[in-house]
Computed example of a mutant assay.
Amino acid sequence: MPRLRTIITAAASALTLLLALPGSASAEVSGHFYYSYTDANGDHQVDLYTNQEGECTDVKEVADGDAKFAFSPLNKTTNELWVFTELTCTGDKFILAADAQGTQANKFASYYFVPPRD
Rank of each mutant, 00 (worst) to 15 (best):
E53W: 09
E53P: 00
G54A: 00
E55A: 10
E55T: 10
E55D: 06
E55H: 09
C56K: 11
C56V: 08
C56S: 06
C56Y: 07
C56R: 11
C56F: 06
T57I: 10
T57G: 00
T57R: 12
T57Q: 09
T57W: 01
D58R: 12
D58Q: 07
D58G: 10
D58L: 07
V59L: 08
V59W: 08
K60P: 06
K60W: 13
K60Y: 14
K60N: 08
E61H: 15
E61V: 15
V62R: 07
V62C: 09
V62S: 08
A63D: 12
A63W: 11
A63V: 10
A63Q: 13
A63E: 13
D64A: 14
D64W: 13
D64M: 11
D64N: 14
D64R: 14
G65F: 04
G65I: 05
G65S: 03
G65Y: 02
G65E: 00
D66N: 15
D66L: 15
A67K: 09
A67H: 09
A67L: 07
K68D: 15
K68V: 12
K68A: 15
K68S: 15
K68C: 03
K68M: 11
K68Y: 10
F69G: 04
F69K: 10
F69N: 11
F69I: 02
F69S: 13
F69Q: 07
A70W: 08
A70K: 09
A70C: 09
F71V: 05
F71M: 08
F71N: 08
S72Y: 12
S72E: 06
S72M: 12
S72V: 06
P73K: 03
P73Y: 01
P73T: 00
L74N: 14
L74Y: 12
L74C: 12
L74F: 12
K76P: 04
K76Q: 13
K76D: 08
T77F: 09
T77N: 04
T77Q: 03
T77Y: 05
T78N: 06
T78Y: 01
T78K: 06
T78E: 05
N79H: 11
N79I: 07
E80T: 15
E80F: 06
E80V: 15
E80Y: 05
E80N: 09
E80W: 04
L81T: 03
L81F: 05
L81Y: 02
L81Q: 01
L81V: 06
L81D: 00
W82L: 12
W82Q: 13
W82D: 05
W82A: 08
F84A: 03
F84S: 03
F84H: 13
F84G: 03
F84Y: 15
T85Y: 02
T85Q: 09
T85D: 04
T85N: 02
E86Y: 02
E86W: 04
E86R: 13
L87Q: 01
L87C: 04
L87R: 07
T88W: 07
T88L: 04
T88Q: 11
T88P: 00
T88A: 09
T88G: 00
C89Q: 02
C89G: 03
C89S: 04
C89A: 02
C89D: 00
C89P: 06
G91V: 09
G91L: 04
G91N: 04
D92E: 11
D92W: 05
K93S: 06
F94K: 15
F94W: 08
F94G: 01
